[in-house]
Design a protein around this nucleic acid. Sequence first.
DNA 1: CTTGGAATGTCAACAAAGCTGACGTATTGT
DNA 2: ACAATACGTCAGCTTTGTTGACATTCCAAG
Lengths: 168, 168
Amino acid sequence: MPEGSQPQTGQSLLFLTDEQLRKGIEAMFFAYRGFTADPDRILADKGYGRAHHRAIHFIHRNQGTTVNNLLSILGVTKQSLNRVLRTLIEDGLVTNTVGTQDKRERHLYLTPAGTALERELSDAQRDRMRSAYRAAGPNAVAGFRQVLEAMMDEETRQHYEAMKDKTE
Amino acid sequence: MPEGSQPQTGQSLLFLTDEQLRKGIEAMFFAYRGFTADPDRILADKGYGRAHHRAIHFIHRNQGTTVNNLLSILGVTKQSLNRVLRTLIEDGLVTNTVGTQDKRERHLYLTPAGTALERELSDAQRDRMRSAYRAAGPNAVAGFRQVLEAMMDEETRQHYEAMKDKTE
DNA sequence: CTTGGAATGTCAACAAAGCTGACGTATTGT
DNA sequence: ACAATACGTCAGCTTTGTTGACATTCCAAG
């Protein structure tokens, strides 16, 4: 048996060869760089980083979320998130309101300025995604999403699914 | 016209709505976390980080590459790469040989120990990729790759294409 | 009503990994 | 001879992640 290959079952499993998998891995690495490049440029001008983008994105998607919920979506420590959140609040992009039922909780909202930045960032990111989608076509897009979803950790996928059907 | 949607041309362009694009963006974010999770765990045990993984991966793929070439593949500064490379050389995972034609160049190779670590890391990463591929099927995989390739920067895609057809 | 635990915020210290700028050395090409 | 290239390295800075410790606020159970 040639080294590095999988046993064949008779069906076409050629897409599961180590070589195919390696190409997928490299595609993922290189594509992610493109995926973040446009927002990164915008953020750098304004003195923010990728972490700010993520916070803004998920607060926008989930207006009124608690800090704890945001924490588990982002998968970072509260100290790390807090640093980012603090600058966003100081700069007037995010507000922090005490919970009504549970006053320990802080609910996070984007201000108009925050919404504007979110818009700018997601426009840039969507532009690239749109042209990739357009170039690849609807079938490819469906496959793209299927593979990505299958690649997630179980817990992560639950966050993803939970946000999937929300309409803005 | 509902806000945030694209005008319809009569053909099915529903896969290009802002909502579809947003799902793609989130899928990309969450999937990338899964993509790096397994190697990250292995690396953390050994006192390395993601940067070491990338260096090891591309040296493996491109045995004998020069530092400059690796630099342009990885898209980082030489200072940043050097820090990583130095530890890998000190630890005996990578060797550094003076070029034969051009003695200014250093050619990078994995040692047996380096190859072993590369194997361990890529096995872990391939396992996840394989199960995602298997779950999604060959059609989906083709689409996955198409979209990722369309998402890359032009310069990045050239690096990707250049490595695409190399056999181990 | 008191108290334990949960949610949050904050301080300090640290590490990984990126960046710029400057400089040195060896080598190559003009 | 001299400029350019390839590489390494020092110093200093930034972003973003980590632990650990500790205070505050508040809910809920006893």
